[in-house]
Simulated scan of single mutants.
Amino acid sequence: MTSAIEVLIVEDDVRIAEIHRRFLDKVGGFQMTAIANSGQEAKDYLDVLKPQLVLLDVYLPDMKGMDLIWYIRQYHKEMDIIMITAAGEGEMIREALRGGVVDYLIKPVMFQRFAQTLGRYREQMRLTDRTRLNQAELDRWLWRAESEEKRSAEVFPKGIDPVTLGKVLRTVTSMSGKGVTTEEVAVKVGVSRTTARRYLEFLVSSGRLKADLSYGSVGRPERKYMIKS
């Protein structure tokens, strides 16, 4: 999937809707198609715009968000839903999960949690765009998603953002088994060399990566990072 994922925001509070729109812009890879402030307006946008993803509030002025979930499941089965709501009741959450929501975020939503959910969704779309997956490939994604979710609960030191940390770790994982340099990671992730080095050294200190010195024919030895086996 190379084009941006189209998103409909369904939220009756204009200020919160604008916050979510800005969050989407910061995450990247997503394009807001419209903001619906009521259930009926949402239905109209769903029928006409046909977004891939709906960010849905439970409390709407003219209907319950749960009713809109079942409307989407009946008429737009191909659309995905992420709930973003102040409703934290167990019964409400269970019904939303039965309706097949991708994730359930409880307000007020911090950007870190929002970005994690959208990033996982984007990766899932890229993975499932492939014609066929085998069990090993699917398990790697599911288990990696689970491990990332567990890591999000960790307390990170100042200067370490979990979203950037995940990008750095995935970059090292996906690149050469012989190890990658700070500069290579910085270019791939889109951060400065100083920032890349800080994250790489944190991953070394936490036991997720190992580092070694690579001696070239000329110049100083270079520190390379790789997944710890």
Rank of each mutant, 00 (worst) to 15 (best):
I5K: 06
I5L: 14
I5A: 07
V7M: 12
L8F: 08
I9M: 15
I9T: 12
I9A: 06
V10H: 06
E11M: 04
E11R: 01
D12E: 12
R15Q: 11
R15V: 14
R15D: 14
R15Y: 11
I16F: 10
A17L: 03
E18H: 11
I19C: 05
I19W: 00
I19L: 13
H20P: 06
H20N: 15
R21S: 15
R22D: 14
F23Y: 15
F23R: 10
F23S: 04
L24P: 02
D25V: 10
D25L: 14
D25Y: 04
D25R: 14
D25W: 08
D25K: 15
K26L: 08
K26D: 08
V27Y: 06
G28A: 10
G28M: 12
G29Y: 13
F30M: 08
F30R: 09
F30K: 06
Q31D: 05
Q31W: 00
M32S: 07
M32Y: 01
T33H: 05
T33G: 12
T33M: 13
A34V: 07
I35A: 12
I35L: 13
I35W: 04
A36V: 01
A36C: 02
N37T: 15
S38E: 13
G39C: 10
Q40G: 04
Q40F: 03
Q40D: 12
E41T: 03
E41Y: 03
E41K: 09
A42L: 09
A42H: 13
K43A: 00
K43G: 00
D44P: 01
D47T: 02
V48G: 10
V48Q: 14
V48I: 14
L49N: 11
L49H: 10
K50R: 12
K50I: 02
K50F: 00
K50A: 11
P51W: 08
P51M: 10
P51A: 11
P51Q: 05
Q52S: 13
Q52I: 01
Q52P: 05
Q52T: 07
Q52R: 11
L53T: 06
V54F: 03
V54L: 09
V54Q: 08
V54I: 13
L55H: 06
L55P: 03
L55C: 07
L56Q: 01
D57V: 03
D57I: 05
D57M: 06
V58I: 15
V58P: 02
V58Y: 07
V58L: 14
Y59R: 03
Y59D: 02
Y59G: 00
L60V: 02
L60P: 01
L60I: 08
P61W: 13
P61T: 03
D62G: 02
D62W: 05
M63A: 01
M63G: 02
M63I: 10
K64P: 00
K64C: 06
M66I: 15
M66D: 04
D67R: 00
D67I: 02
L68N: 02
L68R: 06
W70L: 03
W70V: 00
